[in-house]
């Protein structure tokens, strides 16, 4: 058995989600090779080689991979797939885009967002927005799997660095072209990796009011998130969204402010260790999952919270 794991990285940094996926790979067993694909990614490969349990790092460093377009990325993975029993990746937007393509090209089924490894061919994954957990077995010769990062601990660094080996880029299928990116810039920790998340919902009433949350987030070193309603209303950009189809988070502390707690939102945060809800509607479903609930007007509670902290 051997696992090929696609590393996730951003701006020359290995992303923490890769480490969570390594833990899932170790639970599967066998030789673990990490694949780093990008342009100017020597530092990412170096960081990946130090993770405990990694036997080898493959690096495809080419201008062709400056942006993770699904078609060239999946063509590369398919070219390397021979000999691997499992192809894994953390369930990021890059992997969700490319891995189904890999699975189809290999003519195998895919398992999305696993949260548990029962055996090398048997996995647990949430269905119906996490309202049910399915144990699924694949009969295919190769298992193509995305891993929900919050379900696995992050693997630390090992004693010795694994060898790093360059692999050649494969011909660009030229089926898509990168035009532009509009990425949010923030000094705050990344939403999916933050230890504390402060999130706002429709109750925030406007984008300007999010500064009340930002002040608290900065005091706590927290990330700022939002419900779908707040994103749909245009208060904050889409990458703030926590929920079934947004980001899945499981921080030590999740503070939900002015969020009613729709099923789709709960799906994205109910595995947080401690949940705090601040909402003026005492019937709001968010209180059913909150460890600490405060029934209050958020415009009064948030300045008080800022002062207390």
């Amino acid at each position: 058995m051997s696992v090929l794991l696609l590393a996730e990285h951003e701006q020359g940094q290995l992303k923490a989600a890769t480490r969570n996926a390594v833990t899932a790979a170790k639970a599967i067993g066998g030789d673990l090779h990490v694949l780093v694909v990008g342009s100017g990614v020597a530092a990412v490969a170096d960081a990946a080689s130090k993770i405990d349990g990694v036997a080898k790092v493959l690096v495809a460093d080419s201008a062709l991979y400056a942006h993770p377009l699904a078609e060239p990325l999946s063509a590369l993975i398919v070219s390397l797939a021979g000999g691997y029993s499992h192809i894994l990746a953390p369930a990021t937007s890059t992997a969700k885009n490319a891995l189904p393509r890999v699975a189809a090209l290999l003519d195998v089924a895919m398992l999305s967002e696993i949260t548990g490894v029962v055996s090398p061919h048997r996995f647990v994954r949430p269905i119906y927005a996490g309202n049910a957990l399915a144990t699924v077995e694949s009969a295919d010769s190769v298992q193509v799997v995305t891993v929900r990062p919050t379900a696995f601990d992050a693997a630390g660094d090992g004693a010795a660095a694994a060898p790093v080996e360059a692999v050649a880029a494969v011909a660009d299928p030229a089926l898509s072209r990168f035009v532009s990116a509009d990425l949010s810039k923030s000094e705050r920790p990344e939403l999916t990796a933050a230890r504390i998340v402060v999130a706002g919902g429709r109750g925030m009433q406007s984008g300007e009011n999010f500064h009340l949350l930002e002040a608290i987030a900065d005091t706590l070193g927290a990330a700022v998130g939002a419900s779908r309603a707040a994103v749909d209303a245009g208060f904050v950009p889409n990458d703030y969204q926590v929920g079934q189809t947004g980001k899945i988070v499981a921080p030590d502390l999740y503070i939900a402010v002015g969020i009613s707690g729709a099923i789709q939102h709960l799906a994205g945060m109910k595995d947080s260790k401690i949940i705090v809800a601040i909402n003026k509607d005492e019937e709001a479903p968010i209180f059913q999952v909150a460890d600490y609930g405060l029934v209050a007007d958020l415009f009064k509670a948030l300045p008080e919270l800022s002062a207390e902290l």
């Binding site: 949430p126 957990l133 694949s138 999952v289 909150a290 609930g293 029934v295």
Partner: peptide, 20 residues
Amino acid sequence: PRLTVLKVEEPPTRSAGVKV
């Protein structure tokens, strides 16, 4: 189907805590 669903379970439920 290529995937066999062996079982489907309820997720662990989270109970409401306290109001402050």
